[in-house]
Structures are given as C-alpha cells and as structure tokens.
Design a protein around this nucleic acid. Structure first.
Length: 511
RNA sequence: GGCCCUCUAGCUCAACUGGCAGAGCAGUUGACUCUUAAUCAAUUGGUUCGGAGUUCGAGUCUCCGGAGGGUCACCA
C-alpha cells in the first residue's frame, strides 16, 4: 500500500488531504482553468504598462507551488508552469479570513493550484498576480526534494539541488519537476528530432516505420534481445538496426526513405551506450558515400542552427564547430600517421598482428584483420577527433553491407563521423549486388565461426530482395542520443534519455 | 564481467586515531500586510543501503550481498 510507505512528513500531507475532503473540497478536481502561462501573463502586463489607459489584466494561472512565504495576513508564493514562474500575492483584504485560513491549512509546496485575479507590480518590482480566488488542482502527498534559488549579484544560486544520479534517473519525474535545466535538455532533444525530420522532408525523403520485432536481426554487429511470439511459436529479435528493411524499400521504389526510432543492443551499458537508443537512418537512391558526406554536414549544421541558433557547441571542455566542411581523413593514411603501419601492406590478420607486435601495440589474439583495424581506430584515432571528422574508406571485412571502391576490392566506400572523440554516425555506398551480398554474409559467418555470439546471420529474404534490383544508393545512420549529447553538452547518454536503463531494484528480499 | 570510489533525516551535506549521529533547507507550532534561500522564536524527524563478524563500544574496521558512479573489457 502506498500509505504504508509514507514518512511522518508525508502522513502530515495525507491528513491535509483528508481534511480537504472533509471540508467538501475535492483535492483532485476534474476541471482546471488557465488563461495565461506565467510568461504570457508577465508579457501581457509589461505591454499594458506602457499604455497609460490600459485596463487591469485578469488572469487565471495554474501551476505547481514552488515557494510559499506566509507573513501573517499576506502570503507570497511562486507557481511554476511550462514556461516559467509567476508570483502569487495572497492578501486577507482580497480573500477574507476564511480563504486565507484555507491556504495556510491545506496548501504545501508541490501542490498544483489554480489562482485568478489581476496582475500588478509589487513594491520590489516583480510582476505578480493579486489573487482573488484560488483552488486546489492536485494535492501532492510526497514533498519534492527541497531546492531553493537565491539570487546573488544577479546570478541564480541553487541550494540543495536534487543531484543523486540514481534518484534522478529512477524518478525522472522528480528530476524534471525540480531541475529546470533537465527540462531544457528534453526540449532540445525534441527540437533536434524535429529539425532532422524537417531537413530530410525538405529533401524529399519520406519517413517510414519498419518492424522492431524481426525474425532475423541484421544491419549491424551486435547482440540482440530475444523474445518469443506465443501463438506463432516463433523466436523474434528486437532490431539492432533498420538497415535491411529500409534497403528493401529502395528495391520497392521508395527512393528516399528515413526512419527515426529505437534500436536495441544487448551489450554493455556505458556513458555512451544504452541498451535501447535512438537512431536515424536514411537511404538515398542514386547517391554514394561522398554525397552522403556532404549531406551529413549540412544536416547536422542545419539542426544545430535550428535548435541552438549556432553551430558552435561546448562538449567535454571543447569548443566544437559543427559547420561544414568537416575534416576528411583517409583511414589508411590516418593509421599510417598514428602508428606507422600501412594496413594496405598488411593484407592478412597475421601480418598486421606482426606489425602491431613490432610496435609493442597490445591486441587480443585471434582477431580478424578488420577487428584489429577497428581496435586501432578506437584506440588511436577516435579519441583525437574532437572537431567533426569523417574517417573514410574502411576495410571490406568489417563492412559486409558496403560496396568496394572501384579497383580496390579490399576497401569499401564507407565513412564514420566522429565529434568530441565519439563516433556519431556511420555511412556507406550500399552494396546492391545480390551475389556479392550473399558471399559477404557467408564470409561473415565464417569469420565469426569460433564466436557464435557475433555471427552475422544470413538474411535470405534480403538477398532475395536485392536480386530484384536495388538502385545504387548511399545509406546513413546516426546516433540521435549522441547528437543530443553534443547539442546539450552532456557527457553521459543517460542525461539525454528520459528513462535510461538501470538495474531493476527489488525493494525487499535482496541477496 | 574485472578494478576503484560512493551510499548518513524528505533534499544537500557534517561527524578526528572506533567513543552520546549533527547542520542548513523542508516539516510542525507561534509572531509578522511587499516577501522572494523572507525573517524571528520554539520544535519533530535516523533500520547510518541490507546481513554477518571483530570490539567493552562500529556511521567509522573486516567479510558477504545490493544499488549507483568512474574506469577497463565488450560494443564491425
């Protein structure tokens, strides 16, 4: 029972709730009214002030009580609503003894209140609502974590802010209610998704939805979550990418498609990984990875400009400029410069391993050539790409869905975009030769034969789709959460996901 | 999964080499007709994450377990 979990402090509030009910006041009324938000009210008053003959502005405001300062026959309060705070001014002269008593007897910080009256400016100069009537909209039985703002030399100083990360993530509703900067993150997130959609829509892409429950997962190398359909007695996987379905749409003649949605990967959780995360993928017929590169710079810069009003962002202590053009680096060249190894001269895992050993670079035994190169990228290149950088031309054996560079079968037309030392996006010229694609699946199966977990399963229907003819195309995927991290300057992906994954918590019977 | 750190009142935090578990805010009661961390006076509130051990005595030391954070591994 909820009541059994109440602290002494909360029991007091429960008593007030009962008292309200006994007094015939509904603590959770069905209807509410709001003529102005706090900001709208203040704006309207300021505008009227400049007109000498303006009549008083009547306002009904609604919001959560964030501060209460009773001073005998006067009470000041601030309510918070979606765009700010408004001071309420309660005076016995306006309300009468009985209504004032109701205020002090039943109302607490955190309660939702509706108040009506006229706007005025206090002696200290704050636009406030002189309350003539008010009612309870929703009683809060638990107190919000105490936090107060103090203005020191014009700067807002916050005291006793809710900061415990576990509470903030598990009870995001509390975090949002008391930390305005957290609300701001998610407003930016929403605006970011909207901006990406607008950019793509403006370029004639259509947004589609493809299956999350898939009989065969693919499009990336990751462990899937497995589930089961009871009636069909069928094993299903939560998608790890959208790629193979979106490319089927290219076969069908939808030449420009994109999807924004959730991917699920059954892997480690970290400051930049959440088991479910938001991805944007698009596929663009008759384009190639070079065109996609230009397009990517424009899209990200467009979103930044639209959402933040600038392409400059602060991330992890760095000033980053997202404006095009982004630095473009050839993978072979970059590795050559970083560790003095020419991967072109080391076409096998064995020779590359030998080269690594000769330079005392640690690596795990038994890795494929592609995985060794990928490890080099992660260790020596990725952390250094603070300003936006496209790393181009990847080895074929770690890119089973990408098309080779003409005349260079071991290298594919693929790039990854890095910003802030973090991989942001991944794109390539799409492989559309069904026979080659089938061969790649077979090779991938063989490459990971010792390591079943990572096997890239053959998707016969996808290969079959390609055999009907898929136009040449460029494809692209970007981690939307990571983009929002950049836009909001947050180092942890958990800060930009409303309900990040945490281990479930048993209230009792632990251990 | 390995290693390191953290967990004390509703929130933010104290508590020396092991020695009566505290403060501010919020809460309660009272005063107060222009406050804004309101102020003033009084006051309530604790399974110190859970369990076991060492000890005359454990928030503090040891062990087991839990959760969170960091880091490494993993993640084409």
């Amino acid at each position: 029972m909820l009541e059994d979990t109440f602290s002494e402090l909360e029991q007091v509030r429960l008593k007030k709730l009962r008292a309200l009910e006994s007094a015939g006041i509904d603590p959770y009324p069905t209807r509410a009214g709001q003529t102005h938000t706090s900001q709208e009210a203040i704006d309207a008053f300021v505008k009227a002030e400049s007109q000498p003959d303006a009549s008083p502005i009547r306002v009904t405001a609604a919001g959560r009580i964030r501060s209460l300062r009773p001073m005998g026959k006067l009470t000041f309060a601030h309510i918070q609503d979606r765009d700010g705070k408004l001071q309420l001014f309660f005076r016995v002269n306006d309300l009468g003894e009985e209504k004032m008593a109701e205020l002090s007897a039943y109302y607490d910080l955190g309660d939702f209140i509706q108040a009506s009256g006229t706007l005025f400016r206090t002696k200290r100069g704050e636009v406030s609502l002189q309350v003539e009537d008010f009612k309870m909209l929703a009683k809060a039985l638990r107190p919000l974590p105490a936090a107060k703002d103090e203005v020191v030399d014009g700067e807002i100083v916050r005291h006793a802010v809710l900061s415990d990360p576990e509470t903030r993530y598990r009870q995001r509703y509390v975090d949002l209610a008391v930390n305005p900067d957290v609300q701001e993150i998610f407003k930016i997130r929403s605006a970011t998704v909207r901006a990406l959609q607008k950019f793509l829509d403006d370029h004639d892409f259509i947004e589609v939805e493809t299956p999350i429950l898939q009989p065969i997962y693919g499009g990336a190398a990751a462990q899937p979550f497995v589930t089961h359909h009871n009636q069909l007695h069928q094993e299903l996987y939560l998608r790890i990418s959208f790629e193979l379905y979106l490319k089927r749409l290219l076969v069908g003649g939808l030449e420009r498609v994109y999807e924004i949605g959730r991917d699920f990967r059954n892997e480690g959780v970290s400051y930049k990984h959440n088991p479910e995360f938001t991805q944007l993928e698009f596929y663009w017929a008759y384009a190639d990875y070079l065109m996609v590169m230009d397009f990517t710079e424009q899209m990200v810069a467009f979103a930044a400009e639209k959402v933040l009003g600038t392409t400059m962002v602060n991330f992890n202590g760095h000033q980053i400029n997202l404006a095009p053009p982004w630095q473009r680096v050839d993978l072979r060249q970059a590795i050559l410069e970083a560790v003095d190894i020419d991967i072109e001269l080391n076409p096998t895992a064995e020779s590359l391993q030998a080269a690594l050993e000769s330079r005392q670079i640690k690596h795990k035994p038994g890795m494929t050539r592609g995985k060794l190169i990928d490890a080099l990228i992660g260790e020596f290149l990725e952390p250094n790409y603070i300003q936006p950088t496209f790393l181009c031309n990847y080895p074929r054996d770690i890119s089973p869905l990408a098309k080779s560079i003409p005349g260079n079968p071991s290298v594919v037309e693929r790039f990854e975009g890095f910003v802030g030392g973090m991989e942001l996006c991944n794109a390539f010229t799409e492989l559309n030769n069904p026979l080659d694609q089938e061969q790649r699946f077979i090779e991938m199966g063989r490459a990971y034969a010792d390591d079943d977990e990572e096997q890239h399963p053959m998707d016969d229907d996808f290969v079959n789709a390609l055999s009907y003819g898929m136009p040449p195309a460029g494809g692209f995927g970007i981690g939307v959460d990571r983009l929002v991290m950049l836009f909001t300057g947050r180092r942890s992906i958990r800060e930009v996901i409303l309900f990040p994954h945490l281990r479930s918590q048993d209230d009792e019977d632990q251990g």
